[in-house]
Nucleic acid binder design. Structure first.
Lengths: 260, 260
DNA sequence: TTTCTGGTTTCATTATGTGGAACTTTGTTC
DNA sequence: GAACAAAGTTCCACATAATGAAACCAGAAA
């Protein structure tokens, strides 16, 4: 297992198990979880029972499989609505989506990964994986690289340490060295490209959302397919996307959660 | 407190606290939580610390306020994607939204409340967590009543016991008796109305999604404003909405999660 | 300074969770 | 349909991890 092993007592273990179920990507049986688990049979059993009773897991009574439960959806709604980026970025994303006519993403950096927190669909629906709550690699996506490029050194090293580089396509930058060179370039001209680095046929341009003080708050991207455009074509969105990012940054900056 | 008091040990307590933060509806300070909490100072403190370290809560370092954390959004994404209703209902909702040109909702019954799991709006195509994950009362919404109407007796009584009836508007049915009479009518003609019972100016028509065996899987609704239409006007969607519900039921019925 | 209020740490006590092993149920094989 | 295997559930002596009263600390207000 990668993290959190044994720390934070019983509660930590419970979340470990929850993650394990989520990470499976499909409903899983007890036995299957057991052989991926750090915990002994009885312990795992009791944890699953508790999580299920609490609504954090859903147990399919027929198949005996566990999946993340709907209570998480309730809680996530509140998390999203109270976060300091996604809710107030909505109008700006709307505008950018209309302006570009392409798919637009808003993402944050979370645990060294890209966490997509909002998206707008193009009129012309692009077939790809994405929506709020989805996570992706940081080192080979436009939003990911845009954010990494503006991280302080220590934070960058920490983020890099969490990556396990995988060569998704021929253009994937799969070494820290190659990535760091790219990050310098991104930092220099203020926006990042995804040159089919994560998925063949999918390209994008992305800009970081930076606070006044230079802290990375998130990133915005405009995505398209190679069938429909190319990198040079995406360049015409460089200015609008930066403007959008700036507008979101401004809105996020002095923002306070509205009182009732 | 309403539920889960003291059960399920430490993990249960942790989730209690998580709920308490979520239910506040805004970022809250330690002291504020303390005086709504069943737990003593030190215990609550440690629980908050653990939840924060785990990413389930986010602590604003400046204000010292807690809010639900982004890890929940990740998990909820998986929960949603693996649920047996929302993901496969998407194309049907799309169609209904286009057909009606109105706002369309998909909901489930969860803990006696209405849990919205998807939504379409004619103008604004896809907005994920802004509406998915939202909860509402069952006794005064179209989807809620549609589902309650088709619950087995025991389940209905259980659901009713969880309601605390509040008179939102002049038309709200705020007694079990009035509600039960309405449920009989709904059962008879297969669809439910919301006659501005939850919010003034908002009306809707809803149909339950029933499995072959008659089990309540969820509900679909078409919503509009009194400024724009009236109940009679909504009636023209009765047939399409029932057809949609049936289509979703069929899709959900023999559905298995796709293997990798 | 003193007095608050809000937040953090300590530590002896005990409740809580642990996990090996035994047991039961379910489903497969001959 | 008996015999076997695999998956799932319960037990219980034991150890760890959670408890919470009280003490402590920091900053704001008087």
């Amino acid at each position: 297992m990668k993290q959190g092993d044994g720390v934070d007592g019983t509660v930590g273990k419970a979340f470990d198990v929850l993650d394990q179920v989520a990470v499976a990507g499909r409903p899983v049986r007890f036995a299957e979880l057991l052989e991926g688990s750090a915990y002994p049979k009885a312990t795992l059993y009791r944890l699953l029972q508790t999580l299920t009773r609490q609504g954090m897991l859903a147990l399919d009574p027929d198949l005996g499989t566990y999946a993340p439960g709907m209570r998480l959806v309730r809680l996530a709604h509140v998390a999203w609505a109270q976060s300091s980026l996604a809710p107030l970025a909505r109008p700006m994303l709307d505008r950018l989506a209309v302006q570009t006519g392409e798919t637009v993403h808003l993402a944050q950096l979370d645990q060294g990964q890209v966490l997509y927190v909002d998206k707008r669909h193009a009129a012309r629906p692009v077939e790809m994986f994405s929506s709020a709550g989805k996570v992706g690699p940081a080192y080979c996506t436009g939003v990911g690289k845009a954010m990494l490029a503006h991280l302080p050194d220590a934070a960058l090293e920490d983020a890099l340490a969490r990556q396990s580089f995988h060569r998704f396509t021929a253009t994937t930058l799969d070494t820290p060295q190659a990535l760091k060179a790219e990050l310098r370039a991104i930092r220099a001209n203020g926006h990042a490209y995804d040159r089919e680095e994560h998925e063949a046929g999918i390209i994008c341009i992305a800009a970081p959302i930076l606070s006044q003080a230079g802290r990375v708050l998130g990133a915005v991207s405009v995505t398209t397919t190679t069938a429909h455009s190319d990198l040079a074509g995406l360049d015409r969105w460089a200015a609008p996307i930066k403007q959008t990012a700036a507008a979101i940054a401004t809105a996020a900056e002095g923002w306070q959660f509205p009182q009732p």
